[in-house]
Amino acid sequence: MNLDTLRDKLGYQPLLLGIVALLASGALAVVSDATAPAIAAAEAKDLRDSLSDVLPAGLADNDFLKDTVELDRDGKTVTIYRARQGEALKAVLFKVAERGYSGEIQVLMAVDMDGRTLGVRVLKHTETPGLGDKIEVKKDNWVLSFNGKSLLDPTPERWGVKKDNGVFDQFAGATITPRAVVKAVKGGLEFFTAHKAEITGQAA
């Protein structure tokens, strides 16, 4: 069979492209199947790792990934993970977001039942590298300063950066980024306080 003469035939093109598409999609299907469980496991591990980052060690003994409640906050669904010791609810974890200097800053926070923050981590942000990225725990210890703070400590008017007469430091050259994080955490605490009943499941 002569390939050269066949290649210019009209029927050859759809056949070839069809076969290639078939093979490609087949290969993708196989790989996708093979990797799906591994990816799911890795992502679950990721989430657990980051959740346990904000949660002090030994506070929970349940699989809080499975113990969730979903609440509506300003039209968006917030998934709340509940950490328990035995049956007692010890802390809840959830994500909050706030607009920073350039785009949204996603913050994960853990709150104990008294409304005190146990830990705060920035999950995702697009702040200026070297300037606003000190909110990452890898770069700076700044986010640790939220540990143990509640809506009453400091008082609401002191919930701000030092430039605005608050208690939290700002970084040199960048005020907007820490301001956004402070606002996010404060908002998270307010959200927790407002919906405490639903979160603990007592309302249900």
């Binding site: 790989v31 990797t35 990816i39 990721d46």
Partner: peptide, 12 residues
């Protein structure tokens, strides 16, 4: 896509 999936699964 295969590289992407494979890395996600085994070189997370």
């Amino acid at each position: 896509t295969i590289v992407d999936l494979a890395m996600n699964a085994w070189l997370h």
